[in-house]
Each structure stands twice: as structure tokens, then as C-alpha cells.
Nucleic acid binder design. Structure first.
Length: 949
RNA sequence: GCCGCGGUGGCGGAACUGGUAUACGCACAGGACUUAAAAUCCUGGGCUCGUAAGAGAUUGAGGGUUCGAUUCCCUCCCGCGGCACCA
């Protein structure tokens, strides 16, 4: 076994002493910026998941250096934040101290893995040198109007004693402590992310990011396209704008619904004011969770004597206050269309509002489509679906002339309702008279088909009615009807799958079993005056235009709440003066230092209020007594710009050197966890876009390419957690197996982005591989190593490996790159065992291939081969395609697509020669004997497929 | 409910543009070395039948296109992630 401990210690010291990985900005080689999402240094130390991403970027960085690029590959610490503060409170130690201890431990662990970071560029977001510029960023946003203070309902976590951004609330609970979040009306600082909503969506299209992250961001921003339509209130000057995605359903509006927070509610002279106020008061005390997830039934109160006017048809409609309408979304007011929105339907049923169908779904019969040369006849029709619960069968008819299966169909006569028509037809066609009405299956459906029995095209506006058979009581059926149809009872299975002629049937089945009563799909308009007959799409814009509505979009995204009532963060650089108001701290006074002498325990009020020296200041403008903003910033503000700081981490004059930023950024590839999809990754994009608009940078996306490392699960396949006891400590693994084995194993586990379970037993495989490499070199060195490789097998294998590994590193397919190295070593070892002494060129090439993955052992082997300089900047090996080609190739011979034999032939054989060989083969003869060969397909160098009759 | 990703041996996984499915590794079995074990090296099967040669099945299920499908199309099932009273 190779001595990993000595080797790893030796080379880590070598890299450090030689400053091997210090990045020189002035080096004019082509630049590449390879970035890790920097860690939050927790007291628990490194998790095995951290090195997965770090190893990936390290392999890529080392590879690029050997390819001749100038590589920026830095590391730092996202050091402010709540967990550090909570840990410090628990231990009774200042967070400054605990954080520095955690950083030291993280640094030690990361360095023990031999990553090629430029440690001169290490950053710490909790240091004044860094957060001075976080404060500068805040002030820049403030100047641009992108940072503002507003009183608004905000998320408050009682347990953490602070407000939270929307992005930090998961299903109504706090991201950190999982306790429910409540709404509070507070004055807080926000960043105007919503201003960039459209850019944040459209920018995604050009990014090489995992599709899942892009989708998550799109969902989070939640753009809805629709229209804003204004409803006026009768006998008042009040106008209520309403946002809807379905302006086409305007003629189906039954009521106007207002959120309890709607400001117009105070302007009305309502008869039942007390009742309305009581309702508003009740809903105010509900949490968002109660109003959404937990609510079982829609509630609301009608505003007596108040009528809204439907702008489409001037109809007077009632106005309700209802808490299923959210004040924070759209305009806080909704037009209620019960027939086509499930929530409105439920509300309408409860409060007895009219349900008017205005959209009719259409269906074209695929087996009997309309014929162009035939007349069209329009009919109103009813379908009676009759179910016999005792025998679990459906009533159907078999039409004699065409032998088709159908439900009971009837035309609706003048002056007759659909229900009357259904009962009449049932009696006439089947004789059944004792049926129980269950429900009408939604509004009508329009079916287009060719009616064979009448030789005409039909447009049938069909209403479906669902009955249950109450008894077998029947009246006689006329002979005329008997001649037309047989009455059959059909099994449920046949009824739903057999070929019934009724193309409406899928709609009926869906409505019979679904809890969705409203039809929210597309179709053509009915009950909509001049728009009748137009499609929903056409009607959307036409109706919007008619009522002077505006095409608008609404977003789910809210502005980013950045204030925190906690201690361990960057102070917000604002001063409040009685005369001047809100005054930004002048840049020259930055940083606003976080005082170290405060009791930082959380009380719900910012701890900084308790520091008199911090809190009581003089106004920078008029010198009169003033107070400092006592909230700190969300830590995600610190991490939203860290990639910029790395280009000039020691610059005291600016956040980042603009010309350095221009030459290094945007980041070529960023690797990190998927959990930051709508947090860090969206905030960083926003900040970059804002900085671009301010002229500080020339690009509007920070990370061109993004890859997520998948989660490493415990050996039990579950997420690693202390409570489950399945956590793997990297220190122990590194100590036992060495950093190179650890790196190699994590990369060999599977594709970088996949979640995969840890398996300590499997590490042995990676270790065995390195031992095998070690002994390969030891054996080679026992002989006199020739400078040039002469063995064709060795040449072929090493050149194949160079080709494949190079391609795999480019696509970050490290698992297959490692398997290629294993194949190569196995092959080289075989040659060696057979008595061949490997050439220096072969050994050096392999060492280089190995070096990004297992850099310590590679450096040692490189030195053993007699090289004086380190391996890190030696040129990456090239491959020779002519050496890779196999002299003998294997051709699979298939008969009708099944492989029956294999032919080993020289690579330059022609198709004819191969065919001759194949047809001469005894195995092949056996299979094609007595059969006529239809055709022969030849795929060069792969297979020959003989197709027989 | 909507959107996205995925489902391949006992396990992690591989397979280019539709061309010999299961590379590589783990585990397992047999053998060599050893007094013995560990380590190492060699060999092997992978599901069913068969002593074997071999045959058949097989990439979540079912169907389709094709000479040929893990790969393309349709329907469905399961798992993971996101959004969700969002008008």
C-alpha cells in the first residue's frame, strides 16, 4: 500500500511553500473563473457533501491550468448569520469567537483535501473589510431607489425573533427552525427585486443551468398573463380594478370579490358595516397558513346595498368581502366566475349565486370526423348516463343499422328542459321509468361529427345527465324503437374502454368522478352576446378591448425583505434624523462597525438598540441628534456579491476593481447545492443586473454555467442527519484512506448532479485502484524505463484514455473518467505482467491524467519519474487518433435483430467481404437455413443484420 | 391539480447520433500464494431452463414506429424536487 499520509502532507506543504496556486492577474493567458458556492462555516465542521462540489471544481481548475489557462479558483466564508448566533448564545460565547473557530476548522479540513485554491484571496463576509462593501452595495441600491423602507405585512418568526424574506418561508414555516411564521405589519427595508421580474425570467433562457433550477426560479417568480378590468360601483365614484387570466369569461361573472385588506372597503357606506368589519377583523387574525392550506370552506360577507357593474353587459352584481381573495396578489379583487373557476364555484354554491356557463368545450369525433362535402346541422342534445349500482353496469344501446354502442341520446325539443328530454328518451327508447337524478354533468359540450344515419355533419350541443337506476320498472317500448336499438347493460370496464360512439364520454366520466365542478379549459363562447361562437383565445383579447381593459401581467414574486432584528449581520448603513429624515451614512464613514460590546440575545428588538454608542449618533447632514438603523442585513445580501470581491479581495478603495471584474467575470462555472435555487442564485442574479444598470459591471448574469452537486445520502439511503446517526465525518475517512482516495471515491460514486448513497465498503475500490497505480510504477522502475513506448497495446490504451478522459472532464463526467483510468491501468498492468516495461511517455501521460483527480499521489509519481518541477502546470497530454484504432474489430452478426454470433475481422474489410464471411459462418447458416434473405443491414465496424422472411 | 427531473443486475452506476444492454467499481463464488489469516493475484456467474453446448426473457408497465428501441412516439404506474385558494 502506498504511504498516503506522508505523500499528502509533503505535497500540501510543497504547494503552500511554492504558492503554486496563487493567481496572477497580470498573466495574460486566457482567463477562466471557477467558483464554488462558499460555505457557511458551522460548528459541526465539513459535511461529506461539501467536498463533492469542491473536488469537481478542483479537478476542472487543475485541468484548465494544464490546458494553459489562467485560472481563478478562490474560497471564502459566508460567516454572518443566525445559526452561528444561536450557537454562540447556547455556548455563551461571542459569535465572533465561535465563527472564527468554525472558520479555522473548515479551513483545516478543506486544506487537508489538497484543493488548489488561491488562499491569498480568502474572504470572510463578517470581517469589516468585507461588510464595508456590503454596506456600500446597500447604499448604491438606495440611491437608485432599489432599496426602500416600507410598512407592510411581513413574515415574522416568533422563535427566531426576526422577520424573514418570502424565500425563507417554507410552506408557512421558518426555513431555519420550522416553526410557523406569522404576519406582522412592520416597517422594514426591502430590495426591489420585482423591478427585475421579467429580466430574471428571460435571462434564464441563455444560461447553461440545470433545467430544474430554471423551472424553480420561473415558478417562484410566477408570472401570470392576463388583463386588468375595472368594475365600477353603482351610485359611487369608486372603481375597482380586477386582475384576471380569463377575460373571456367576463359574461359569466356572478359577483365581485374583495380581499379583507382591500382599501376600497373603507370607502363604502355599507348597511351591514358591523358584520363586514367583524369579518375583516377575524381574517386579520388568521395566519397565511390558516387562510390557505388549512381552510376547508370558502367564507365571505355580502356588502348589502352595494352593487358592482359588469362592464361587459352592465349587469348589476353583488359585492363580497372574502378571505380566499389575497390582498397581496394581483389587485386584491377578483371577478367571480363560478362556472369556470372551482373556487368561485364553491363560493357560489354556498352563497346561492347564479352559475352561468360561458365557455363550452368542443370535441371532434376522431372516428367519424365531419366531411367537407356534407351539410351541417346544429342540434341541442341530451345524453342520459344511467348507472345500475346493484349490478355495477351502465345502460347502453346498440344501434342496429351500424352496430354502434351509445348511451341514450335525445334531441331537446322546443320548450323542454334537458332533464325532461332525458327522461322522455329513456322511456321511449329503453322503457325504464324509475331512475334517480344524480347530477347534471357541467355545462354543455359541443361535439363535431359526421352522422352516418342521416348523412349529414352534426354540431351537437350536448348536456350530460347522470342517473342511477332505482328499480327495474319498465313500460313497453314501441316496435319502431325496438327495430332501431338493442338495450344492453355494459360493465364499467367495457363502458369506459369499449368503443362507444359518444366522443363526449371522456368529459362525462371526468365530471362524474372529479371533485372539480367548474370547467376551466378552453372552448367556444356561449351566453356572451356578440362573442358567442368565438374561441376563448379570440374572446380574451376582444372582450378586454371592449371593456377598455389592459393587458397586464402579475407576479408571485415579492420584494426582498432584507432587515433582520438580529445581531450577527452587517449593520444597515442608515441614520434617522428628526429634521432630515432618513439619511444614508456617507461612504467615507463606512464601515458602520458592528459593536462587540452588546448583549446579543434576541428579544424581538434589534440588539443594536441596546448599544448607546452605536445607536445614538449625530446626523451626518445637520449634526442634530439622530439614531442609527438598528437592524442588520439578511446574510444573503453578503453572499449576493461575493464572487465580485474575489477578483480584488484586498482592495480598500472599492468593492471590486472594475477592470479586474471585467477580465475575470462572469464566472465560467459555478458549482453548489440546489437548495439555493430561489435564494442565493436568484439574489445574485438580481444584484448583478442592478450593478449592470448602475454601470459597475458589463454583464447581467453572474454565472454562465451552473452545476449542482447531488446530495450524498447516508448508507441507509436517507438524508444524513445527526438524529438518524448516519452522518459520515470526512476527517475520519481522510485519515484512514487518504485525501486522494476520498476525492476519487466521491467522484466515482456517480454523476455529479445525482443524489447517491454513501457506501464505506466501496471506498476500498478507489483505494485499491491507487495502490494498483502505485505498484505499476514501482514495478516499472525496477527495470530501465525506455523513453518511448513501443508496445502497441500500451500505446492504444493510453491514447484511448487521454481521449476519453479529456472529453469527460469537459462535460464533468468524472465517474466515467475514473472508470476509463481503471480500464487503462488494468490494461497496462496486463502488458507489464506479460513482461513489457512501460515507456516513460506512457507513465508520464497517465500521471498527468490522474493528477487533477488525485493530485498528491500524482505529484509523488511525477517526482519519482525524475521530474524536478511540480506537475500542476505541465501541458495536458494529447492523443494520436491513429494509435487508437483497433486492427481487429468485432462485428456482431444478427438474424432478424437478434445477435447470433460475432466475427473478429480486420478493420479494413469491406462490407462484401464481411457478408461473405457471415454467410459462410456455421452458426449463421443454422439460423438462415430454409429461409429467404430479405435484406442485409450493415453498420460499419459494428454489426451486420440479416433479415429473413 | 400544474411544472420539472428520474425509474437499467444483490448495490453504486455505464451505453456515442436508434446499432452486441449491464462497461467500471462494490458485494458474492471458486482457485493460486500462505502453517493459517489478511492483503494480493487469477477465474466466474449474474434472471429462467439446461450437466453442458446453448436457448429464452430482460432497461417501471402496456402499446406503437423500425431490420433493430435503455434511446423516438402514445397511455399508465411509481419515486424525487418546485409551485399551489396566485384569480
Amino acid at each position: 500500500m502506498y504511504p498516503h499520509k506522508d505523500i499528502e502532507k509533503k505535497w500540501q506543504e510543497f504547494w503552500k511553500n511554492n504558492q503554486t496556486f496563487r493567481t496572477d492577474d497580470s498573466d495574460n493567458k486566457e482567463k477562466r473563473y471557477i467558483l464554488d458556492m462558499f460555505p457557511y462555516p458551522s460548528a459541526d465542521g465539513l459535511h461529506v457533501g461539501h467536498p463533492e462540489g469542491y473536488t469537481a471544481t478542483d479537478i476542472y481548475s487543475r485541468y484548465l491550468r494544464m490546458k494553459g489557462y489562467n485560472v481563478l479558483h478562490p474560497m471564502g466564508w459566508d460567516a454572518f448569520g443566525l445559526p452561528a448566533e444561536n450557537f454562540a448564545i447556547k455556548k455563551g460565547i461571542h459569535p465572533q469567537e465561535t465563527t472564527q473557530a468554525s472558520i479555522a476548522n473548515f479551513r483545516r479540513q478543506i486544506q487537508s483535501l489538497g484543493f488548489s485554491y488561491d488562499w491569498d484571496r480568502e474572504i470572510d463576509t463578517s470581517s469589516p473589510e468585507y461588510y464595508k462593501w456590503t454596506q456600500w452595495l446597500f447604499l448604491e441600491l438606495y440611491k437608485k431607489g432599489l432599496a426602500y423602507k416600507a410598512k407592510a405585512p411581513v413574515n415574522w418568526c416568533e422563535h427566531c425573533q426576526t422577520v424573514l424574506a418570502n424565500e425563507q418561508v417554507i410552506n408557512g414555516t421558518c426555513e431555519r427552525c420550522k416553526n410557523p411564521v406569522i404576519q406582522k405589519l412592520l416597517e422594514q427595508w426591502f430590495f426591489k427585486v420585482t423591478e427585475y421580474a421579467d429580466e430574471l425570467i428571460s435571462g434564464l433562457d441563455n444560461l447553461d443551468w440545470p433545467e430544474s433550477i430554471k423551472t424553480t426560479q420561473r415558478n417562484w417568480i410566477g408570472k401570470s398573463d392576463g388583463a386588468t378590468i375595472t368594475f365600477s360601483i353603482k351610485n359611487t365614484s369608486v372603481e375597482i380594478p380586477v386582475f384576471t387570466t380569463r377575460p373571456d369569461t367576463l359574461f359569466g361573472v356572478s359577483a365581485l370579490m374583495l380581499a379583507p385588506e382591500h382599501p376600497a372597503l373603507t370607502e363604502f357606506n355599507i348597511k351591514n358595516r358591523d358584520e363586514v368589519n367583524a369579518y375583516i377583523e377575524t381574517s386579520k387574525h388568521k395566519t397565511n397558513l390558516e387562510r390557505t392550506f388549512l381552510s376547508k370552506e370558502k367564507t365571505g360577507v355580502c356588502l348589502d346595498d352595494i352593487k358592482a357593474i359588469n362592464p361587459a353587459n352592465s349587469q348589476e352584481i353583488p359585492v363580497f368581502v372574502a378571505d380566499y381573495v389575497l390582498g397581496s396578489y394581483g389587485t386584491g379583487a377578483v371577478m367571480s366566475v363560478p362556472a369556470h373557476d372551482q373556487r368561485d364555484w364553491e363560493f357560489a354554491k354556498k352563497y346561492n349565486l347564479p352559475i352561468v356557463d360561458v365557455v363550452m368545450p368542443t370535441v371532434t369525433d376522431q372516428t367519424n370526423p365531419p366531411r367537407e362535402d356534407k351539410q351541417i346541422k346544429i342540434r341541442n342534445v341530451v345524453h342520459a348516463i344511467v348507472y345500475d349500482p346493484r349490478n355495477k353496469k351502465y345502460l347502453t344501446l346498440r344501434g342496429k343499422p351500424f352496430n354502434w354502442n351509445t348511451v341514450v341520446i335525445g334531441g331537446i325539443e322546443e320548450g323542454e328542459t334537458a332533464l325532461e328530454a332525458a327522461l322522455r328518451e329513456l322511456k321511449e327508447e329503453t322503457g325504464y321509468i324509475d331512475v334517480k337524478y344524480i347530477k347534471t354533468l357541467g355545462g354543455p359540450i359541443q361535439a363535431h361529427f359526421f352522422a352516418k344515419h342521416k348523412d349529414e355533419n352534426r354540431i351537437a350541443n350536448t348536456t350530460g345527465i347522470y342517473f342511477e337506476l332505482a328499480s327495474d320498472e319498465r313500460v313497453p317500448v314501441s316496435e319502431e324503437e325496438q327495430a332501431k336499438n338493442d338495450v344492453l347493460w355494459t360493465d364499467e370496464k367495457d363502458f369506459t374502454t369499449k368503443e362507444m360512439v359518444n366522443s363526449e364520454l371522456p368529459f362525462w366520466l371526468e365530471r362524474m368522478h372529479s371533485t372539480n365542478d367548474a370547467y376551466s379549459g378552453e372552448g367556444i363562447l356561449i351566453n356572451s352576446e356578440e362573442f358567442d361562437g368565438t374561441t376563448t383565445k379570440e374572446a380574451s383579447s376582444a372582450i378586454t378591448q371592449k371593456v377598455n381593459g389592459k393587458i397586464t401581467s402579475t407576479y408571485r414574486l415579492r420584494d426582498w425583505l432584507v432587515s433582520r432584528q438580529r445581531y450577527w449581520g452587517a449593520p444597515i448603513p442608515i441614520i434617522y434624523c428628526e429634521t432630515c429624515g432618513t439619511v444614508p451614512v456617507p461612504e467615507i464613514d463606512l464601515p458602520v462597525l458592528l459593536p462587540t460590546d452588546v448583549d446579543f440575545r434576541p428579544t424581538g428588538e434589534s440588539p443594536l438598540v441596546r448599544s448607546k454608542t452605536f445607536h445614538d449618533v449625530k446626523c451626518p447632514q445637520c449634526d442634530s441628534p439622530a439614531r442609527r438603523e438598528s437592524d442588520t442585513m439578511d446574510t444573503f445580501v453578503c453572499s449576493s456579491w461575493y464572487y465580485l470581491r474575489y477578483v480584488s479581495p484586498h482592495n480598500n478603495d472599492s468593492a471590486f476593481d472594475q477592470s479586474e471584474a471585467k477580465s475575470w467575470l462572469p464566472v465560467d462555472i459555478c458549482v453548489g447545492g440546489a437548495e439555493h435555487a430561489v435564494l442565493h442564485l436568484m439574489y445574485a442574479r438580481f444584484i448583478t443586473k442592478a450593478l449592470k444598470d448602475m454601470g459597475y459591471v458589463q454583464f447581467d448574469e453572474p454565472f454562465i454555467k451552473l452545476r449542482n452537486q447531488g446530495m450524498i445520502l447516508g448508507e441507509d439511503g436517507e438524508k444524513m442527519s445527526k438524529s438518524r446517526g448516519n452522518v459520515i465525518n470526512p476527517d475520519i475517512i481522510i485519515n484512514e484512506y487518504g485525501a486522494d482516495t476520498f476525492r476519487l471515491y466521491e467522484m466515482f460514486m456517480g454523476p455529479l448532479g445525482d443524489a447517491k448513497p454513501w457506501n464505506t465498503q466501496s471506498i476500498a475500490g478507489s483505494q485499491r485502484f491507487l495502490d494498483k497505480v502505485w505498484s505499476l510504477y514501482q514495478t516499472a522502475l525496477e527495470s530501465n524505463i525506455p523513453e518511448k513506448e513501443t508496445n502497441s497495446e500500451s500505446l492504444k490504451n493510453i491514447h484511448k484514455a487521454i481521449k476519453k478522459i479529456t472529453a469527460d472532464i469537459e462535460t464533468m463526467s468524472f465517474n466515467t473518467a475514473i472508470s476509463t483510468m481503471m480500464i487503462c491501468v488494468n490494461a497496462l498492468q496486463k502488458e507489464q505482467t506479460a513482461g513489457h516495461t512501460l515507456g516513460r511517455d506512457t507513465l508520464e501521460s497517465f500521471t498527468k491524467l490522474l493528477s487533477p483527480f488525485a493530485p498528491h499521489i500524482a505529484e509523488e509519481l511525477w517526482e519519482i519519474l525524475g521530474n524536478k518541477e511540480g506537475i500542476s502546470f505541465t501541458p495536458w497530454p494529447a492523443f494520436d487518433e491513429t494509435l487508437i484504432r483497433d486492427e481487429m474489430i468485432t462485428i456482431a452478426v444478427q438474424i432478424n435483430g437478434k445477435t447470433r454470433t460475432q466475427l473478429s475481422v480486420s478493420h479494413d474489410l469491406s462490407e462484401e467481404e464481411i457478408q461473405t464471411l457471415a454467410f459462410g459462418d456455421t452458426n449463421v447458416k443454422k439460423w438462415i437455413e430454409g429461409r429467404e434473405t430479405q435484406k442485409v443491414i450493415y453498420i460499419p465496424a459494428r454489426l451486420l443484420n440479416i433479415v429473413t422472411k
